[in-house]
Amino acid sequence: MTEYKLVVVGAGGVGKSALTIQLIQNHFVDEYDPTIEDSYRKQVVIDGETCLLDILDTAGQEEYSAMRDQYMRTGEGFLCVFAINNTKSFEDIHHYREQIKRVKDSEDVPMVLVGNKCDLPSRTVDTKQAQDLARSYGIPFIETSAKTRQGVDDAFYTLVREIRKHKEKMSKDGKKKKKKSKTKCVIM
Rank of each mutant, 00 (worst) to 15 (best):
T35I: 00
A59L: 01
Q61K: 10
E63P: 06
P34Y: 04
R41N: 08
C51Q: 11
G12R: 05
I21T: 08
G10V: 01
E31H: 06
R41V: 09
Y32N: 05
D30P: 09
G48E: 11
E37R: 15
D54T: 15
D30F: 07
V14F: 10
A18E: 04
D33W: 04
P34W: 00
L23W: 12
T20M: 05
G60D: 04
N26T: 09
N26V: 05
I36E: 00
H27E: 14
F28P: 03
L53H: 05
G12E: 15
D57W: 01
D38E: 02
S39Q: 08
S17N: 01
R41M: 11
G13E: 14
V14Y: 06
D30C: 10
P34Q: 04
A18P: 02
I46E: 08
Q61T: 13
E62W: 05
E62L: 06
I55A: 08
E31P: 04
D47W: 05
N26C: 08
N26K: 15
V44C: 14
K16A: 05
E63G: 05
Q22K: 13
D54R: 14
Q61L: 11
G60V: 02
V14L: 10
F28Q: 00
V29W: 13
A18F: 00
V7E: 06
I46L: 10
D54N: 15
T20Y: 02
E37G: 15
D57T: 01
E49W: 06
I46W: 08
V44Y: 08
C51G: 09
G15C: 00
G60A: 03
S17G: 03
K5N: 11
N26A: 14
K42D: 07
G13N: 14
I24T: 06
D30L: 09
K42Q: 10
K42Y: 09
C51T: 12
E31L: 06
D54Y: 10
R41I: 09
G10Y: 00
E37F: 15
L23V: 10
D30K: 10
D33Y: 03
T50Y: 09
L19D: 12
L23K: 14
I24K: 14
V9I: 13
L53K: 04
K16Y: 03
D54L: 07
H27L: 15
D38I: 01
E49D: 11
E62G: 07
V14A: 13
Q22T: 11
L19F: 12
A11Q: 11
I46M: 10
D54S: 15
Q25R: 07
K5R: 13
E49C: 09
T35V: 01
G15W: 01
G15E: 00
V7R: 15
Q43V: 09
G10H: 00
Q22S: 13
R41T: 08
E62N: 08
E31R: 03
L19G: 13
G10S: 04
T50Q: 11
E49I: 08
L19N: 14
A11G: 11
L23H: 14
Q22A: 08
K42V: 10
D30H: 09
S17D: 00
I46G: 08
D57I: 01
D33C: 02
P34M: 04
E49G: 09
R41F: 05
S39V: 05
G60Y: 01
E3P: 15
K16S: 11
Y4A: 11
A11H: 08
V45F: 10
